[in-house]
């Protein structure tokens, strides 16, 4: 069971209800070692319940969960040192400095202060080590939260919306940090509402709604299978919708905000056909994104 090839996390037909609400409905997911796995879905879809069951904080009503070959609940002291959990609220010890906080967290795992120093270095916070946790900036808070998660060098890391409320630069830095984590072989379970991030970072994603897994695959595969295809946006007045509909390879035509939007699975063919009819300057090609797939599945109107 503990071989390197066995999955890091296995959920088998896991269900959980709160009264009438199905928070998890027959969820089966297997996450491989070293995989960067995204858990997506609207608020209330059951992401938090699912993660808390994997962490051993909640018990499923039915179904089984194994993490690194072990049952996470009841509180499993063999498993806990091998997982790291970042909570949504940044959990910092009151009125301590960043360094003192990490030293305390390291001690919770029976580790020496030197471990805290390494974690501080890993997230690039060595210079801010003596700043009180309440005084550090938003981006640094998130790094410190991640450092707290990594201080004991866990094999499986749970990150709950780590990039929420960050400015674009901090988000980019954090994205790079997450790639580094994956590069050193951590298994990462990642929840986010930033679908562009999920698309670039995650090996596979599960899209959840009302406790059910609506889709589970790599972002690329999900996009390809969705058949949404590429959207070509043609500035107004270049050609009529009727004309556009007759072009080779065009599957659909719509007018949005005065622009003509052509949908296709064969971008090159459409562009070639379009070249004979209209000026190609400023024609935009927009490949389908994970966000398109997500919105189609969740049922919100297409952007």
């Amino acid at each position: 069971m503990s071989s390197i090839d066995s999955p890091a996390i296995v959920l088998d037909a896991v269900s959980k209800s709160y009264g009438e609400v199905r928070a998890a409905d027959e969820v089966s997911i297997s996450i491989g070692r070293g995989e960067f796995f995204g858990l997506l879905g609207p608020n209330g879809a059951g992401k938090t319940t699912l993660i808390e069951m994997i962490e051993g904080l909640r018990l499923p009503d039915t179904g089984t969960i194994t993490v690194l070959g072990m049952a996470p609940a009841p509180r499993n002291l063999d498993l806990l040192p091998r997982i790291g959990v970042q909570t949504q609220r940044s959990a910092f010890f009151t009125r301590l400095t960043a360094r003192e906080h990490l030293v305390t967290v390291a001690a919770l795992y029976g580790l020496p202060p030197a471990t805290a120093e390494k974690a501080l270095d890993l997230v690039g916070l060595t210079d801010s080590g003596d700043v009180r946790v309440t005084k550090i900036s938003g981006g640094q808070r998130q790094r410190l939260a991640i450092a707290s998660t990594l201080v004991h060098d866990p094999e499986v890391v749970f990150l709950d919306e780590p990039t929420a409320a960050l400015d674009p630069e901090a988000r980019r830095d954090l994205g790079q940090m997450l790639r580094n984590l994956k590069a050193i072989g951590k298994t990462i379970v990642y929840t986010t509402h930033h679908l562009d991030e999920a698309q670039t970072l995650c090996d596979r994603v599960a899209i959840l709604s009302a406790g059910r897994v609506l889709a589970l695959d790599s972002p690329r595969e999900l996009i390809a299978r969705s058949g949404i295809g590429t959207r070509l946006v043609v500035p107004a007045g270049r050609l009529s919708p009727e004309q556009a509909g007759t072009l080779d390879g065009v599957n659909g035509v719509a007018v949005e905000d005065g622009m003509l939007v052509l949908r296709t699975a064969h971008t090159a063919r459409v562009l070639a056909a379009l070249d004979g009819e209209a000026d190609l300057d400023d024609v935009e090609t927009r490949p389908a994104t994970l966000e398109d797939v997500y919105l189609e599945l969740i049922g919100a109107p297409q952007a």
Binding site: E55, L57, I83, T87, R89, A91, T94, Y109, G110, H152
Partner: peptide, 20 residues
């Protein structure tokens, strides 16, 4: 105060998820 604060700040959760 400590108990309320540690629970609100998710510190109790961090502790519960450690072997302490």
């Amino acid at each position: 105060f400590t108990l309320m604060q540690w629970r609100n700040d998710d510190l109790l959760r961090i502790i519960r998820l450690s072997p302490t």
